[in-house]
Amino acid sequence: MEGKANQPVIEFREVDYSLPSGRRLLHSLNLHVQRGETLVLLGRSGSGKTTTLKLINRLLSPTSGEVLVNGAPIGETDVIRLRRGIGYVIQDVGLFPHFSVERNIGLVPRIEGWPAQRIHERVEALLRMVGLDAEVAARYPHQLSGGQRQRVGVARALAADPEIVLMDEPFGALDALTRDQLQREFLELQRRLNKTVVFVTHDLREALRLGSRIALMDAGRLESVLSPEDFLRSSAPLPSALCKLLERV
């Protein structure tokens, strides 16, 4: 792995994606995600952020071009293995309503055949990691608050210790205070775990706060990839227009 230090963990090469109807959602996308960084995909609805994200765990497949994970084209790898090595967190969380929190978090380890004791310890450690009490483990999703649910969602994504974590507006449905707290915890966690994170949001503040780099998308095209500092200083039309909006509030 040492020799590959400079190899991007995720790489898009000339990726196009069109719907079966022929509508093009993504135009020749080229993008690199480096090890341990948080790359934020920023853009308005319909800009292609979520499509880009889903191409990484092959919930969608490119119409042309290729996506590489650790240098290997993912079209040629086993999709189930690929996905189990990638944590996935979505806005609606998607916790299994018929499973307790413990079973939700421990599902991937369980189907990977971990011994029960190890799963149990892992679940406890993860709950602590995302700031939840151990007693939450026995509860069911409908007994949790929105913030708790999303914490469990994050814990579940981290369960099998994936190298990559994909997050699709994970804090979008939360109230402002809870969102702020979870963003803070995310930064804390990311400092400790150093995962390669791709984070989708339409919220510029969130992007500036969480991202190592911000990939700005518009109408299916990648506009620019900038660090938060450069983003704020940029004189390009779209970033500066967004930053002006930020000043107005």
């Binding site: 189930i80 996905r83 998607g94 991937v108 579940r156 994909l166």
Partner: peptide, 10 residues
């Protein structure tokens, strides 16, 4: 969302 999460988890 539940189905998507399940698929995404592998």
């Amino acid at each position: 969302a539940v189905v998507e999460a399940g698929q995404g988890m592998g």
